[in-house]
Design a binder for these strands. Structure first.
Length: 237
DNA sequence: TCATTAAATTGTT
DNA sequence: AACAATTTAATGA
């Protein structure tokens, strides 16, 4: 393992394909699009590497181009609590960016990931100049509120199968994570880590969901067949 | 391009 | 936690 320069020292310009993978760029008027594109940066994060740490001043609004990130928090006792995974297309940190505060969570790459960053000043400039961008951010905040409320329910569910189903439904959210599509690239080990179950138990739950017809298990990923079922249906187990 | 090998992931106990 | 089976990625002729 050779040591590398910090993530923010390894940034580069986005390619055209990467810019295209950013959901809110298409909403901008030409002048806004140009300014945003000038500021956008891309960095490749290795597995386990931190994208941002709680307590550091917020300088960027982040998005996932490719890979899988984890949002977590460290308690005073040193325990790590995982809140959610962030798959491709997801943008996060707008709360702290809005208030110009410090990051409240740790964001860590679960696997090798490509991360986009927009400077906080540009984020504010877009808020001041683009109604479409404001609508995107508002929609984003609203959708995430729904996710966190759902996450509380998930935590109280006694059935592992249900917890896996609902957690998967959250990761397949097309509003928050438009880059995911039909197939979510996630290993059963990674999902187990996010949901807080053993890999064996997740494997069993996924098999049940596959037999039920709401997903299909693929090597290194999962294909959603019935998102509604993942969200609402009640399974045994 | 194909065959072989290593690595990663999944399925099972 | 350990192990076998399966799938993909890497290597080299």
């Amino acid at each position: 393992m050779r040591s590398r320069a910090p993530l923010y020292h390894r940034q580069r310009r986005p390619t055209e394909a990467e810019t295209h993978a950013i959901p809110w760029m298409a909403l901008l008027a030409p002048a806004e699009h140009e300014r945003a594109a000038q500021d956008l940066k891309i960095a490749d994060a290795d597995a386990g590497e931190f994208v941002c740490r709680a307590g550091r001043p917020a300088t960027y609004w982040f998005g996932v181009i490719d890979g899988l990130l984890k949002m977590s928090s460290d308690s005073a006792q040193g325990q790590t609590m995982t809140f959610t995974g962030i798959p491709p297309g997801g943008w996060f940190g707008e709360g702290t960016a809005l208030k110009r505060e410090s990051y409240r969570y740790n964001i860590q790459a679960l696997r090798k990931s490509r991360v986009a960053g927009l400077h906080v000043e540009t984020f504010h400039w877009l808020l001041d100049n683009s109604i479409a961008f404001n609508r995107f951010v508002m929609n984003q905040l609203n959708e995430r509120l729904g996710q966190f409320i759902a996450a509380r329910e998930i935590d109280r569910m006694p059935s592992p199968n249900l917890r896996v189903a609902r957690s998967l439904a959250a990761l397949f959210n097309p509003v928050l994570y438009p880059g995911v599509g039909e197939v979510l690239s996630i290993t059963q080990q990674e999902l187990a880590y996010l949901v807080g179950l053993s890999r064996q138990r997740v494997n069993e739950a996924l098999s049940a969901l596959a037999a039920e017809g709401s997903i299909r298990i693929e090597y290194g990923g999962l294909r959603v067949l019935d998102l509604g079922a993942l969200r609402t249906q009640v399974f045994a187990g």
